[in-house]
Design a protein around this nucleic acid. Sequence first.
DNA 1: ACCTATGTGGGGAGAAGTGGGGAATTGTGG
DNA 2: CCACAATTCCCCACTTCTCCCCACATAGGT
Lengths: 152, 152
Amino acid sequence: MFRGITNLNIDTKGRLAIPSRYRDVITTEASGHIVVTVDHTDRCLLVYPMNEWIDLEQKLMKLNNMHRRARNVQRLILGHAHECDLDSQGRILVPAPLREYAGLAKKAVLVGQMKKFELWDAEAWQKQTEAMIEEARSDDFDMDESLNQVSI
Amino acid sequence: MFRGITNLNIDTKGRLAIPSRYRDVITTEASGHIVVTVDHTDRCLLVYPMNEWIDLEQKLMKLNNMHRRARNVQRLILGHAHECDLDSQGRILVPAPLREYAGLAKKAVLVGQMKKFELWDAEAWQKQTEAMIEEARSDDFDMDESLNQVSI
DNA sequence: ACCTATGTGGGGAGAAGTGGGGAATTGTGG
DNA sequence: CCACAATTCCCCACTTCTCCCCACATAGGT
């Protein structure tokens, strides 16, 4: 399970060093194979070890693609999914189109989300955090019922 | 399985270089035979390795063509299908009528969709992406029920 | 204070993408 | 049936990208 947040830099060639504390898991569980794709609602990237990715991919492929909504989710998530293997220094090369999608320049933030990571441009993450706090403050309960069941 | 997005250029002769990471599979599985056809819902092209195309073709031919919808899908998909083999440099020549259908000029985007690729004009893809994000953001659940079951 | 592990940056070889010349093939009209 | 035009395909040249390697900088632990 991936937890926690890491600030890191993407170099001029678009490379990103995966924090070393995660490398062992990724190497053993996924043979160092990583899949990067886009998030379909926010301008950030999702980073999966290959084994976890395969699970998701299977589920997405089973969707009936005669439905527009499902087809579009497939287009976005499967369509942007790119295999990025760890190089000899434990880095991955994030493809240019994906960097553009997420507005990634130099400073980036890697956020552990259990089975995957989210990868944000530092500035975008900053704003997103503020927006999320603001939203959570408001007491309204028109939210997904299941959330009300959780005591934090 | 084809994944990921590639920006590429179509040259003045209408040739398109298939990214090298896919060539091996196409050569071994389909002897380098590729079929290009149109998508029946969007202005983009579909690119199949021959073996996958055969499957689809069989399915489409079995459709009861007394139904207008089915007959039109057959007309579009089967009718526009064109075999485009890899040349010695790993490129295919996209026939002019298909390029026109998809509005393909110079800049194009090749989107891996598991068993096939979608080929979009760069600008059209850009717009499509934005529209898809916008749609995914809206929380309504009028969508295909199966999509709600998937946790991304 | 030293050493090791980790993050960061860049040089350079080789692979991959791009573009055009020109021969071979196909198709069309006379 | 032939001549001409258009298209397709092979080949070569050039540019860009990817990946391996090495080097340094920084931080944390001993």
